[in-house]
């Protein structure tokens, strides 16, 4: 028996090495923000089982990772608080009272956290780390989604209650422009020197000149264009649409529509899993959908009511401030 021991040990080590990727995969979890049920669902990415349901206070919507990626922040709008989680275990570490954190994002240089307060008609600029309020922009009406210029100087904000979007100078803390973009604007994204604004009251995305705010083009989408996401290889822009319940894949350079996926249930935020599939929250179905981009098939997993933000450990951020 002692003679065979090294061989057995080698075999054992081989088994352990072979199993390592599986173990890593098993540790990978998905966090879903259930806005209508004040909870967070933790899903196992491989088995799709819900492994935990974490209660929060009132109405959580979006998430954002801190620039050092050490903390995952969930914004609870009706509770007026940020919830700081361990991005690995999803354990709640602390809470911070700030008014109405709806969609939010850190500037690309990581110096500021900008928070859109949809219900409170304001955009707040905080110092990253200390979360000291630096400036409050009072915006009429319904500031909804945010993205930034790559130099971190300007925040672009959609004003959902109007037909407008705004550019805010984060250095001088002043409004640069407010411009007509289309009815009920929602998702915002900086892409290749242009600003894209999804137009929820129509079936397109407006393309803006970031300097002047002038609308210089349109991208076709489904009815109720809501939010914008860039694929990890930056080649494809995905646009979800509320009324049509579709996700439109668009060439990120030419803006030509490549394919439209039917995803029933009101697709909202989405994230790109390492296996290439898209995980999206289905707001009106209380489910998460997993979209296979090759076949177009959608697999669903039940979660809490009105799921909104979605985060996968190890996944690449979708391009806008958070999820």
């Amino acid at each position: 028996m002692p003679y065979h021991a090294p061989a057995l040990r080698r075999l054992l080590m081989l088994c352990v090495l072979l199993c390592l990727p599986l173990a890593a995969e098993a540790q990978r979890s998905v966090l879903v923000v259930n806005s209508g049920e004040a909870s967070l669902s933790v899903l196992d990415v491989t088995t799709h089982a819900e492994t935990a349901r974490i209660p929060v206070l009132r109405e959580p919507h979006h998430w954002v990772l801190t620039p050092d990626r050490h903390e995952l922040i969930i914004g609870d709008t009706a509770a007026n608080e940020l919830i700081f989680l361990d991005p690995e275990s999803f354990a709640i570490r602390r809470r911070l009272t700030i008014p109405d954190p709806y969609q939010m994002g850190f500037t690309p240089d990581g110096s500021k956290l900008v928070v859109a307060g949809l219900a409170r008609q304001q955009v707040d600029v905080y110092e990253a780390g200390s979360y000291r309020l630096l400036h409050r922009f009072v915006m009429k009406t319904m500031p909804s989604h945010i993205d930034f210029s790559p130099d971190s100087r300007v925040a672009f904000v959609s004003l959902q209650g109007t037909n407008k979007a705004a550019a805010l100078d984060l250095m001088a803390m002043k409004e640069l422009w407010v411009t007509q973009v289309g009815p009920a604007p929602a998702g915002v994204m900086w892409l290749g020197g242009r600003v894209l604004v999804a137009i929820m009251g129509a079936d397109y995305v407006s393309v803006l000149d970031p300097a002047s705010g002038a609308v210089i083009g349109r991208i076709q989408a489904g009815k109720g264009a809501h939010q914008l996401f860039l694929s990890p290889d930056r080649r494809t822009l995905f646009i979800n649409s509320r009324v049509d319940s579709t996700i439109t894949a668009v060439n990120a350079q030419s803006f030509a529509v490549e394919r439209t996926y039917r995803v029933p249930g009101g697709p909202d935020d989405l994230i790109f899993a390492p296996d290439g599939r898209i995980w999206t929250t289905l707001r009106f179905a209380a489910k998460v959908g997993i979209l296979d981009l090759r076949s177009g098939a959608v697999e669903t997993i039940p979660v809490g009511r009105s799921p909104h933000g979605i985060y996968i450990k190890g996944a690449i951020n979708s391009g806008h401030g958070g999820g």
Partner: peptide, 21 residues
């Protein structure tokens, strides 16, 4: 969800009230 997706949202879209979705 069915009511929202199949009745209310199309109605809001047609009447220009999508900000209330």
């Amino acid at each position: 969800g069915f009511l929202q997706e199949n009745v209310i949202l199309p109605l809001l879209y047609q009447t220009g009230l999508m900000q209330w979705e």
